[in-house]
Nucleic acid binder design. Structure first.
Length: 452
DNA sequence: CTGAATGAAAA
DNA sequence: TTTTCATTCAG
């Protein structure tokens, strides 16, 4: 008896207008080559699976104007003027994930299970990539505050009141943890689209669903299917038939669906409709997808001026001669295989800056970033990332592309969309930046005209 | 309305 | 520390 969970009239936002967020982002070219993470320095061992060299921006946020009138579906019992909470990083990530149909309907449709998969994926996500979502959430929060200055989160205590601890103790749904983990693993490995589907189908062939029920009750195929849309092994032919029906009856899944959030090279060869490369949130639209860059080409160094630049064509070749910043920008914009590297050693950020990064939600020691070195190095890395992010954040206003956001039917001027500073520090204290072309102009602008 | 995830914010 | 509620939608 789920106790009185009535339509509790919440009193969150007393007089707020209903919000319908639509934040059409601006420019975004469909530059979506696979960006690459820095090849992680030799990692110790028990670290979360580092992504393969080729894998990367799993969920390049993209923009697109959602069919405005789509939301509002089931707002339930919320007062008409209810103001939803600002989304956190994970919620944003989840939204994007769902919207992008990363895991096809053939693989999983149950949202509880999807949440599980997404949660696992989230945890396996490279730190740099999660940082982008945190940045996004930060921005969303800022926007939320701007729009609803007097908003305050007021959780409804009345709801959980009655019985003390019944809130969290439910968990009854049989879930195939292994399968979820497998899917998450495939995702962070870069599997996507049909390739992903096939891999999972293959997995399902040999995998006997291990379902964990609260009371270890025997699991029937039917029960299993109730909470997971995973195909049932061989036990139940009828349910299998049911499952495959869609495959045979319906046309093959449109390939576009999964291409959205995985704008990797192979998916875009086909020159799909423009919108194919734009995924969006219903309410949240993200900044332009970070342009992809490899991490080999550019670097800032510190010899003389604030920054000096040289180009490194590949790990083997020694730094080429310094070149003008303008050239860098030019080349960076032209090359699909370039990244920026900033030597920060001169900034004196090395060991003295060991403070935990706000980017990691865990209060404890963050999982070591892609770096070996001394223990403090990890912290340093985070600190530098944070420093850079803040630094860039301070210059977002310089970013030429502001965007308009729609709100409650109206339109207001929003601050510049968040940029996704994706940094990695190498063993030489150099910061590698994944999306230089958006951040760089702002950053350089901040340095002064002489660097433009 | 619930579940399922993570996380921000409040009690 | 514990609880709500942000998203999403099948069940």
């Amino acid at each position: 008896m789920p106790a009185a969970r009535t339509k509790g009239t919440r009193r969150a936002g007393e007089d707020e207008p209903q919000i319908v967020w639509t934040v059409p982002l601006e420019p975004t070219s469909d530059v979506d080559d696979p960006a690459t993470f820095m090849s992680p320095p030799p990692l110790d061992d028990d670290l979360p699976p580092l992504v393969d060299p080729g894998t990367v921006f799993l969920f390049a946020p993209t923009d697109e104007c959602p069919p405005a009138s789509r939301k509002s579906a089931h707002s339930k019992k919320k007062p008409d003027d209810h103001i939803p909470r600002p989304p956190n990083a994970f919620i944003l990530f989840r939204s994007s994930f769902i919207k992008g149909n990363i895991v096809s309907n053939e693989v999983e449709t149950n949202h509880s299970t999807l949440s599980k998969i997404i949660g696992m994926t989230w945890k396996n996500l490279p730190e740099t990539e999660r940082a982008r979502w945190h940045a996004e959430a930060k921005w969303a929060l800022k926007e939320h505050k701007r729009k609803f200055p007097q908003y305050a989160f007021r959780p409804n205590q009345a709801r959980g009141k009655g019985s003390t601890a019944k809130r969290k103790v439910r968990e009854v749904g049989p879930k195939d943890h292994k399968r979820c983990a497998k899917i998450a693993e495939l995702l962070v490995e870069g599997k996507k689209g049909q390739e992903l589907d096939q891999a999972i189908q293959e997995f399902d062939k040999h995998h006997v669903p291990e379902v964990v029920t609260r009371f270890e009750a025997p699991l029937t195929a039917r029960m299993y299917r109730r909470s997971s849309s995973a195909p049932v092994p061989d036990v139940d032919d009828s349910s299998r038939a049911k499952k495959s029906r869609s495959a045979s009856t319906q046309p093959p899944t449109p390939a576009i669906s999964s291409a959205k959030a995985f704008p990797l090279s192979e998916t875009k060869l086909e020159a799909p409709p423009a919108e194919s490369f734009m995924s969006s949130f219903d309410q949240y639209t993200l900044s332009p997808a970070p342009p992809s860059f490899d991490f080999n080409t550019f670097s800032f160094d510190h010899p003389s001026s604030p920054f000096s630049v040289y180009q490194e064509c590949d790990p083997l070749s020694q730094p080429a001669s310094p070149m003008a910043t303008g050239d860098i920008l030019f080349n960076a914009a032209q090359s699909n295989h370039s990244n920026l590297t900033i030597d920060t050693s001169f900034m004196g950020l090395d060991d003295s800056w060991s403070c935990p990064s706000p980017l990691s939600s865990e209060g404890s020691m963050p999982a070591t970033p892609s770096h070996m070195g001394s223990p403090s190095t990890a912290y340093t890395s985070y600190s530098i990332q944070d420093t850079l992010i803040k630094s860039f954040a301070g210059h977002f206003s310089a970013y030429p592309d502001s965007c308009e956001s729609q709100f409650a039917g109206g339109v207001y001027e929003a601050e510049s969309p968040p940029v996704y500073p994706t940094f990695e520090q190498d063993s030489c204290s150099r910061i590698h930046m994944a999306n230089p072309d958006h951040t760089l102009s702002a950053f350089m602008a901040s340095l002064g005209p002489e660097y433009l």
